[in-house]
Design a protein around this nucleic acid. Structure first.
Lengths: 349, 349
DNA sequence: TTGTATGCGTTATCAT
DNA sequence: ATGATAACGCATACAA
């Protein structure tokens, strides 16, 4: 006698059928009572709810998704899960998505065979109802390759230049300009800049803001005052070594990320150079440690939680209203950056 | 004429039916060719593969999961997604799970209504084939409440004390002992300790290791040399204030987390106290910034990527072999911690 | 407002 | 080795 053993019925999870039986209604009514309560009589609804509670019924999302032809999930494409910069953003995304009943899948775009495997899987395999891209280095055409249809896509933080896809961004150029203004106001006339990876949009945007602000103030732009980097602590430290070798050193340096700023200060310290006495430093991002670094880092702060929420909401909106045109300025939003002055900058003597 | 518009057929994603038609075989054969290639004739298999490629067919995971009664995903219960400590671990989990074809769902246990909502949802709603718990403060009985069955569960990093569930852990007590040994070897006779949250297992384990090592060395254990904390930068800074007020200060302090150690040093710096000249400091975790803090932090390092991989593998093993008994020492593994000596510690004068 | 009936795309059982 | 067919659990079109 299958389903029974020793006289005890194997408890499988209750299905909509079980609930229907208990409430003396059809499965259709149970389904309606749960997903469109208004379309069911008050009394019937009560009966169903009670049966649901007594049986401990939970809808089988897999079955629901199959029937509704949806995935019940969004996927977030992250360049590097290990990078703390993204964790706050992810928190914002997760909170927003789970409120909307959507699971959040994380995929690392820097994973070895990510591009052929998981990524195109998510793109074309109906495994996600929408995609949030935090990686601007994925070529835009990646998403339209093969002319196949894909779910709604929204860029957050980073974006692919020239993309027509909606994107939620910080005002990176504006933030970089803020840093220069601040230093110029303190009397600095020679300002250097540590770059992120050259193929990164944020690197370019921040540099653009930096350059423009320099120009606006009539300050010099010397090639040897730009330092290579890739956003990491290590390359920041490397920039410090380069700075030390300079015949003529800028009295202030702005970094395209806090991590590089910290690496820079760290290496200077090891070489007996003092911040801000000998050189002023401004970071970018305002990561947690910035406030507690030695010295506390002056930096550009961005609402990271908020960008996650905003991007998730934009994507959910697109998912719920597939007819809406995702292109156009209405879907691209710019979040303000702001300067946080701490102890790594001071007026020139 | 539904499905057609203007003479152009709407391309829906191809199904197994389409492939079957193209290859002149039944859907059953296609299914077999894909999930059990050995059970299909060489030539047939070739035909199917070709049809799959020509049509661009991808299996519909939702349908497969419904049929197989599985979720195709594991869920990771994290105390706080924003905490950088977890990101490396997540990276390890993600890499391992995706190799096994499993999606990774992240749930924040500290989210407002997490306990009633999402969590029990994941537990009992077949939304996950397995659960990885990184939060030891969830009461163990939470998982067996209501006597309902649940998917396999594995603890990683943290665990609920007295649990019979498998867990993958670092040797926290051993690591803490390493810190004390190091300081004692440097001649320190008065050593303080900054605690994590009191209800946390790691706090207790690390304190136990600390206490035992102190005892073994015949060093004093003074109540006023234990400082409250909760693993964050802020409470580390707070501990520094407490240290400053002490009539008799320990010459060395070990912290239960790197963040607290950094906060501690940061606040000392602001009060003109020098590390390691005036006091030695040892952290715990070896987060990225430790190496580049000022001074570089001596700390206890743990293989965080590896613990993620190990835990994910253990869970996957349990999922694939449901009959195996998840209890017992075979499933609980201890990963070694190791001391990394940098510049925040030195011998007493 | 409610019930009946069908199908979402796949896999597994049972024949052949 | 292959094919026909029946579920998996739910949601909806249609009928009543």
């Amino acid at each position: 006698m299958p389903g029974r053993r020793g006289g005890i019925v194997n408890k499988a999870s209750p299905t909509i059928q079980d609930v229907a039986r208990m409430a003396n209604v059809s499965t259709a009514t149970v389904s309606r009572a749960l997903s469109a309560p208004a379309s069911v009589a008050e009394e019937t609804r009560r009966l169903v709810i009670e049966a649901v509670e007594r049986s401990g019924y939970r809808v089988n999302q897999t079955a629901r998704n199959l029937r509704r032809k949806q995935a019940g999930a969004i996927v977030v494409l992250v360049p590097n899960i290990g990078n703390p910069f993204f964790s706050r953003i992810l928190a914002g995304i997760e909170a927003t998505a789970s409120k909307a009943g959507l699971n959040v899948l994380i995929a690392d775009t820097r994973q070895p065979r990510a591009h052929e495997g998981p990524l195109s899987e998510y793109l074309h395999n109906n495994r996600a109802d929408g995609i949030l891209v935090l990686d601007g280095s994925l070529p835009d055409r990646f998403f339209s390759a093969g002319n196949r249809s894909h779910p709604p896509i929204v860029y957050a933080c980073e974006w692919s230049e020239g993309t027509r896809l909606p994107s939620i961004r910080f005002d990176n150029a504006g933030g970089a300009a803020l840093a220069v203004e601040h230093l110029a106001d303190l009397g600095h006339k020679s300002i250097g800049h540590i770059l992120g990876p050259l193929d990164n949009v944020l690197t370019r945007e921040r540099r653009r803001g930096f350059d423009n602000a320099l120009k606006a103030r009539g300050l010099p732009m010397r090639p040897d005052w730009y330092f290579d980097g890739d956003f990491t602590l290590a390359t920041g430290a490397n920039a410090a070594l380069r700075w030390l070798e300079l015949p003529e050193r800028p009295t202030a340096v702005t970094a395209s990320s806090d991590e590089m700023a910290c690496g820079f200060m760290s290496e200077l310290y090891r070489n007996g150079v003092k911040v801000p006495e000998d050189v002023s430093v401004v970071g970018f991002d305002d990561i947690d440690i910035a406030e507690r670094f030695i010295p506390a880092l002056t930096t550009i702060s961005q609402p990271r939680m908020e960008i996650g929420e905003t991007a998730a909401n934009a994507l959910i909106d697109l998912i719920r209203n597939p007819d809406r045109k995702p292109t156009g300025t209405g879907f691209t939003r710019l979040l303000d950056a702001r300067l946080v002055v701490r102890s790594s900058t001071r007026a020139v003597a």
